[in-house]
Simulated scan of single mutants.
Amino acid sequence: MATEEMATRMRDGKGFIAALDQSGGSTPKALKAYGVDESEYSSDTEMFDHIHAMRTRIIKSPAFTGDKVIAAILFEDTMNREIDGKPTSTFLWEERGVVPLLKVDKGLEAEADGVKLMKPMPGLDALLDKAAGLGVFGTKMRSVIEAASPTGIAEIVSQQFAIGAQILSHGLVPILEPEVTITISDKGEAEGILREEILKHLDNMPDDQQVMLKLSLPSVTDFYKPLIDHPKVMRVVALSGGYSRDEANALLAENDGLIASFSRALSEGLSAGQPDAEFDSTLAEAIDSIYAASVAP
């Protein structure tokens, strides 16, 4: 696949990243919101069949193209499946003009020192080799900040950058996602600590490398501009983090250079029982609104 073309799209493209990466733990909730009850499947295989059908419907919708969707983050099971006889990653790039990305984390450890670190990732090197072979451009991995703990946040950022370096060694570009929970009382303070820790690690990276960042929408407008403008950052994207789509879009539009990477906010209003015309119209409305917020001056 055209890695340089993908890099240009990721760096300069107008639009947003679609997060289609709900994994085992969050899949039942995503399916229920989509109108597929747990009574409709009796095994993980059937559950993942349903979620792949949902993602396929989204990806094949006329509204879901590279004109407004720069990239899509896939769950490993989705990467391993096909759409119309092509690997999902190949279909995304060749048929939709959308850069394929892969979620690689295995979930979260229990909270300690105000943060939830990522669980160990056995087999990560093999997964990265497989992803690269399927034309995946980059990865995403999430950890969570629950308090403005200087030591906890320093540890979470160190973990993200250490695994990010491993991902870069396979020729893939990592999205580092140290999410700050939007409901904590010291969110602004946590964001201040987080920004400084990220800047420290960026300054120590080799000059020929770049990472991407996925962060919670900040409490202060343009707070992450120093990260957006940093030469070692390819792109900074925002998660909706519990906000409704309208709330997330409004906050996003205030932050120059920050684009969306929404999951639940993207699929809001979609249902398995909708006729295609209604499904496509609902998705187009969501994509148009998230695109507008992502490109707002």
Rank of each mutant, 00 (worst) to 15 (best):
S281F: 03
D256F: 12
D280C: 03
N255M: 11
L202R: 11
D222L: 02
F279C: 04
G257C: 04
M212V: 03
A265F: 13
F262E: 05
M234G: 00
D280F: 06
T221A: 15
A286E: 06
P275Q: 01
I287M: 13
A190F: 07
I287K: 07
L283N: 05
V211D: 01
L251N: 10
Y224D: 15
H201W: 02
I198E: 07
M205N: 04
D207E: 15
L283C: 05
S244L: 10
G241V: 14
A248H: 09
Q210D: 08
I198G: 09
D203T: 02
L213T: 14
N204I: 08
H230P: 11
P275W: 06
A286T: 08
K225D: 14
S219R: 04
A286P: 02
D207N: 12
F279N: 01
A238Y: 00
L270T: 06
R245P: 09
P275A: 02
V236K: 13
H230E: 02
E285R: 15
P206D: 15
G257Q: 01
G192H: 12
R245T: 08
K200G: 07
Y224W: 15
M205H: 10
S271F: 05
Q210A: 00
L215A: 01
L266D: 06
P206F: 12
G257S: 04
A265V: 07
E268C: 01
V233D: 00
R235W: 04
S263N: 11
L199W: 07
S271M: 06
I259V: 15
